[in-house]
């Protein structure tokens, strides 16, 4: 996949905007998912994920073609998410994520039309509770937890995305896990 991506990037650099559409197609789900888990809200996730791709496009000439594109793209996306989180008032996102309707639209979009079996409703509620607790984490713990457990990236990749030493990433993962442990204990 990396070689296709590199080819498309070179086409974009030559002015072929359509080639960028293929890059968006390849990465949109991962970027959107990370933004959703970081922000806990579909609308904001879409907004920020779009912004991340637009910034990638306008800055494509600064990307070092010898490096992994996804690392660079995730760096843009996580930085935008962190900026967005910091602009919000803390008590806003504590409440905003309780989101009955938001979560429902999100899952009903994925699932079929028929009535949901009870287990699915339960698991939807569980999913919402977990998301709510992730959204309560301070942003520096939230980003490492999302990248490690949602995106399943290595410590090394996370350290490159966040531009932090591996030791710092590890400490933040430990603290994030401890904070979540306390929050999720009752589930």
């Amino acid at each position: 996949m990396e070689s296709i991506v590199k080819k498309r990037i070179q086409q974009v650099r030559k002015g072929d905007q359509d080639a960028f559409g293929e890059i968006v197609e390849l990465f949109k789900d991962r970027v959107y998912h990370v933004c959703f888990r970081m922000l806990g809200n579909r609308h904001e996730a879409e907004d920020i994920a779009q912004e991340a791709f637009i910034r990638a496009y306008t800055n494509i000439h600064t990307f070092d073609i010898d490096r992994k594109f996804s690392t660079w793209l995730f760096r843009i996306a996580t930085n935008l998410c962190i900026d967005r989180i910091r602009k919000k008032k803390p008590d806003y996102y504590l409440d905003a994520e309780v989101s009955g309707t938001d979560g429902l639209t999100m899952y009903s979009q994925v699932e079929t039309d028929g009535p949901l079996p009870e287990e699915e409703v339960e698991s939807m509620e569980l999913q919402e509770s977990i998301q709510k607790e992730i959204s309560r984490l301070p942003d520096k713990y939230r980003s490492v937890i999302v990248l490690k457990y949602i995106e399943e990236l290595s410590l090394k990749e996370i350290s490159e995305i966040l531009e932090l030493p591996i030791g710092t990433v590890k400490t933040r993962i430990h603290r994030g896990r401890e904070a979540l442990r306390k929050q999720l204990r009752s589930i």
Binding site: F20, V24, K28, D29, F36, L126, I134, I150, R181, L184
Partner: peptide, 26 residues
């Protein structure tokens, strides 16, 4: 509790970008 935490976070479902995402970016 720590292992449960990890399992819970990993159990969150994978969600996809909205259907017209690419068009909107383009």
């Amino acid at each position: 509790e720590l292992k449960k935490t990890v399992a819970l976070v990993q159990s969150t479902s994978h969600i996809q970008a909205p259907s017209n995402f690419t068009q909107n970016v383009m």
